[in-house]
Design a binder for these strands. Sequence first.
DNA 1: TCAAAAAATGAACTATGTTCACGACCTGGT
DNA 2: ACCAGGTCGTGAACATAGTTCATTTTTTGA
Lengths: 208, 208
Amino acid sequence: MNEKTTETGAGRRELLRARLIDIAQETIAAQGLAGLKARDLAAAAGCAIGAIYTAFDDLDELILRVNARTLARLETALDRALGDAEAEQALQVMARTYLDFARAEEPSWRALFEHRLPPGAAPPQWYVDARNRLFNRLDAPLSRLLPGTGHWAREAFARTLFSAVHGVVALGLEEKIAETPPKLLDDQLEKLVRIIADGLMMESARLI
Amino acid sequence: MNEKTTETGAGRRELLRARLIDIAQETIAAQGLAGLKARDLAAAAGCAIGAIYTAFDDLDELILRVNARTLARLETALDRALGDAEAEQALQVMARTYLDFARAEEPSWRALFEHRLPPGAAPPQWYVDARNRLFNRLDAPLSRLLPGTGHWAREAFARTLFSAVHGVVALGLEEKIAETPPKLLDDQLEKLVRIIADGLMMESARLI
DNA sequence: TCAAAAAATGAACTATGTTCACGACCTGGT
DNA sequence: ACCAGGTCGTGAACATAGTTCATTTTTTGA
């Protein structure tokens, strides 16, 4: 009984789904979102084009699955980095980890932001949840830096902070001509976060 | 001599170019980058599909022309806002103007960042220049805020600052589910810039 | 006035996501 | 063991893109 090679039954469909996500993930990691083609995907998975559409509604859903995995890896990287970090260094560590992740997995990371749903389509709940989990990672460190701040305000500012760091990383890695030199980008991000941390301290001091 | 309606000679080609850019600009402003289709464009311009390719190398070139105009409008908005602003408010004014512009011309503004050249292709020099002009707008205000900073450092930080503001605006207007409430986004951007300005003051104070 | 050069034309080509009629296959009941 | 019914996979065909190119039309310059 070689149930390993010739799986049958309800698991068959799930197996195809997993295989397609795996291949799509590799393709996006290697060639970016634009490198993902339905026909190539089918060929690599050894199935017909139409089979993709029995496993997924469309390529968008498949891309969201790949993006969810990328988000999960990013979360893991942030958690690991934050695990062994001083509280006052948490912001620096997070920003730097984000930059490192973007560099290490640039095409996959880019796919998170390049991908657009067709106009009017709402992303599925499971994807929204994955995104929110990422923002929530920033909440704990921020609460140690900003005690006495309400949940609402902290959550909003966590998002703002993430957005600012993301902007610096995104435009810094954009290579429309000459990408920002790595060392310069490192320094600029570190400087920005330091300045923000200083500004936050002043903000707190004013309230005392 | 109705040279107005039936222009002939060397200007004819230039006329078609201008018409196509105008129509593409309107299309992108109304329906975003994804709404720009070669066939619709030709129909609206009253020419054959092939004529587009006698006026431009490809649609990418046309899009870059439209984007250059958007950059120019953004520059104008920044200049006007900075014209009547106190030096110490320059950063706030710029950030707010950028947010207002993005809101007022969201599809056009989005096209600036959504558009991707085919891999390996370098953007033409005239487009690079247009982009750099934008960053240079931030240099003058920054030099008043950070006297004694070298040209290099100021230019680099201007870019970083722009990137941070852009990140907050870009992710704030992203409406993958529920766009950030306008008032909240206003406040968050104002808060971030205030914190950065405070942090910059501390930075300066340390050096004295 | 006309021949050569330039531009415009639009059908055709390529590439891509998606659908669908058909056939193969699995499942459960007998 | 076998069959009926449903599910799944197939790949040709469809829809929609950008782009090309042989042909036709227009413009130019002598």
